[in-house]
Amino acid sequence: MIKSAHLLPLTGLRFFAAAAIVLLHSAETWPIPSALGNLALNQGVSFFFVLSGFILA
């Protein structure tokens, strides 16, 4: 059986995916810097759900 301690780095990656989602949704209200505007922030949603499913499984 896999111990949860081995999944902590993957759980930490969910923070960055969630941050991308927050930036994407807040871009409609507040302007984001052009350096962040070039990133594919919409991929954060897919990454978050795939990673969450892997962690839960």
Rank of each mutant, 00 (worst) to 15 (best):
G12M: 06
L13R: 00
V50L: 05
W30E: 08
I32S: 05
A17Y: 05
F54V: 09
A18N: 10
F47M: 01
T29K: 05
G12D: 13
P9C: 01
F49L: 13
L10T: 06
P33E: 03
I32W: 00
L24F: 12
S52W: 02
F47Y: 02
L39R: 01
S34V: 10
N38E: 14
S52A: 03
F16L: 09
W30K: 09
A5I: 14
V22A: 13
A27N: 15
L23P: 02
S46W: 06
L51H: 06
W30F: 15
A27F: 14
T29N: 01
F49N: 01
G44I: 07
S46T: 06
H25V: 14
A17C: 11
R14M: 12
A20I: 04
G53I: 10
Q43C: 13
F49M: 11
A27S: 15
A18H: 04
K3D: 15
L56K: 04
W30P: 02
P9L: 12
I55M: 02
S4N: 12
H6N: 14
V45D: 04
L41E: 10
S26V: 12
E28K: 02
L7K: 13
A27G: 15
V22W: 11
L51I: 05
I21P: 07
A17E: 13
I21Y: 10
L36S: 07
S52V: 02
W30T: 03
A57W: 00
S4E: 13
L51E: 07
E28V: 09
A19N: 07
A19P: 11
V50E: 02
L56V: 06
V45C: 07
I32L: 11
A40M: 13
L23F: 05
M1N: 10
A40S: 04
G53K: 00
S46Y: 05
T11E: 08
A57M: 08
N42D: 14
G37L: 00
F54C: 06
P33T: 07
A5F: 13
A17L: 09
A5W: 12
A20H: 08
E28S: 12
H25K: 05
R14A: 04
G44Q: 01
F16P: 01
A19C: 12
S46H: 14
Q43L: 15
L8D: 10
L10I: 11
N42E: 14
A35F: 14
F49T: 11
A27Q: 15
S34C: 04
I21E: 08
I32A: 08
W30Y: 15
